[in-house]
Design a protein around this nucleic acid. Structure first.
Lengths: 65, 65
DNA sequence: TCCATTTGTAAAGCACGCTTTACATTGCAT
DNA sequence: ATGCAATGTAAAGCGTGCTTTACAAATGGA
């Protein structure tokens, strides 16, 4: 599944480590999600959507890749 | 996380087995999700939302339970 | 160039999502 | 009361989501 995490993070001018801190996950998790190595849990998807002030559907694109 | 899966399934008058078939998952998975035994993967959440014609946020309530 | 920051990766380990098989319980129609 | 459909539950097994530790590569400012 594709996501706009990297794009959104860069727009906010923050590093992976900073975002990870805000999301309460490891930096490796943010990196893996940005690089599409795996999908986040539903819980984490909600946390990410909440952080960016968007819906899950606006950040994660199902049926993609 | 709470979900409205059972409510939505019953409104459609279908059994867990029938819903499971439509979602391409096992009946036990539908049962477990309805009973809140665990959260679905993000992929499955998208499939469920698509099936009911609702958004993930309309079906799954984060911060609940 | 040098150094610090950022990003990418790897491995081991634990918990969870989902499967299959199988059986017990509940509910309902006859 | 009997029987079948629907639901609940359990156990073993597999892949994935996420962690920690650790190191390598890339980026960029002075």
């Amino acid at each position: 599944m594709k996501s706009r995490i990297r794009e959104l993070r860069q727009l906010s001018g923050r590093s992976q480590a900073e975002l990870a801190e805000s999301l309460s996950v490891s930096r490796q998790t943010v990196n893996a999600l940005e690089r599409g190595r795996y999908d986040p849990s539903l819980q984490l998807a909600f946390i990410i959507a909440g952080y960016f002030g968007l819906t899950i559907e606006e950040i994660f694109l199902a049926n993609k890749e």
